[in-house]
């Protein structure tokens, strides 16, 4: 600090004119990390006290990205487009389009459907009631609401698109 380095001034009038500085009366200058720091002037405080005119600029876009530039960026490059499939072949079994080196999903679907029916457990036999009232009491039935019926129709499920035959 200045005051620590300078020899002490005897004149009281001069010292009043000078700005007030924290005075440490040690002969040797302290290294910077030992000197007391004032918390008043940190960046956070400046921001909190006067946000608008802190004198510090943060990174921000200067202009709104125009319609043209945005679309050029997002939809211009070719590698972002959906690619054309040129590995299409004809399924030797059903004659539909299929990817080369892949199995035909139409045939796979048919075969798996057959397996599912073949391996399905046998349906349970219906119980026989001598008195029809018993059945009504044990199995009173259920009224399905519209929303439940809609759920069971499973229209909302995304399904695999059907394959097309090669003309």
């Amino acid at each position: 600090m200045v005051s620590a380095l300078l020899p002490s001034l005897p004149a009281a009038g001069l010292s009043a004119l000078l700005p007030r500085l924290p005075s440490i009366r040690i002969g040797v200058a302290l290294p910077s990390f030992l000197q007391p720091t004032s918390n008043e002037n940190t960046i956070e405080d400046i921001n909190n006290n006067n946000e608008l005119d802190s004198g510090i600029l943060r990174a921000a876009p200067k202009k709104k990205t125009s319609h043209m530039k945005r679309r050029q960026r997002l939809y211009g490059p070719g590698d972002k487009h959906i690619k054309l499939k040129d590995n299409l072949n004809r399924c030797p079994a059903c004659g539909h389009y299929k990817r080369s080196h892949f199995l035909c999903m139409n045939c796979v679907g048919q075969i798996r459907k057959y397996w599912k029916n073949r391996d399905a457990p046998a349906p349970r036999e219906a119980e026989e009631f001598t008195n029809p009232l018993d059945e009504q009491i044990i199995y009173p039935g259920k009224t399905e609401r519209e929303s439940e019926k809609k759920l069971q129709s499973k229209d909302w499920l995304v399904k695999k698109p059907k394959t097309l035959p090669v003309e």
Binding site: R99, H101, F102, L103, M105, V158, K159, K160
Partner: peptide, 9 residues
Amino acid sequence: MLKLDPRVG
């Protein structure tokens, strides 16, 4: 191993 079409979803 047999290749199939990619999974829907």
